[in-house]
Amino acid sequence: MPMLDVKNIHKSFETTEVLKGISFSMEKEETKVIIGTSGTGKSTLLRCLNQLDPPDEGEVWLDGEELTNPSIDINRIRQKIGFVFQDFNLFNHLTALRNVSIGLEKVKQLNKEKARERAMDELKRVGLEKQINQYPAQLSGGQKQRVGIARALAMDPDIILFDEPTSALDPELIGDVLDVMKSLYGKVAMLIVTHEMGFARNVADEIIFMEGGVIVEKGPPKQMFQSPTKQRTKEFLGRIATLYGAE
């Protein structure tokens, strides 16, 4: 049984159907990258997984529990699904340290001291031991995003969902964030929406290409980049190579 099982997800906003039957699964500690054009429903899919936007149809299973079952305690489940946002969404009134420890205190019910220690460890892990007492407004974009990753990691999630984690960053800051993500490879499952093709090629176990609300093609990076079977995949990869520079 896979750790995460997504079965035939449909989602509409008013009259437009954004997701038209998405299915895939992930094993423990696997890393998958989702690519696709803008407006194709990648963010919507991530939000359907942790039930921020519950799907209209289909099922999401994590560790043998059905998240789409309305009677499940979704707050308990969300602890197991980290989320890293494009625009960081750090808590503006809290220091980096408190950003990471607050979930441990309020959700995991750790005492202040334990939560603090754990938060310190996570911030060290992402290379921010010097910034623990800084507020979000005093951090660079790359630092903010690393706090965001530490905040997700601290909850001991089974999987972390990344929604374009480097898209809001200046080019010279992207590397730091990608390095942190690389260092998590094999330690926690990651489902990453990104346009960083170099990263996708080097790190992903599988690449999922989405277009028009469906998965057009998926496969290991080598196959996807060298011999995609679908014409649309070829076109998209060709376009992205000219946009972001081929490697």
């Binding site: 921020l52 707050n75 308990r76 969300r78 602890q79 607050i102 309020k106 909850m155």
Partner: peptide, 9 residues
């Protein structure tokens, strides 16, 4: 959204 994502009510 970020707070709910952590599992806060």
């Amino acid at each position: 959204v970020a707070a709910r994502t952590l599992g806060m009510t």
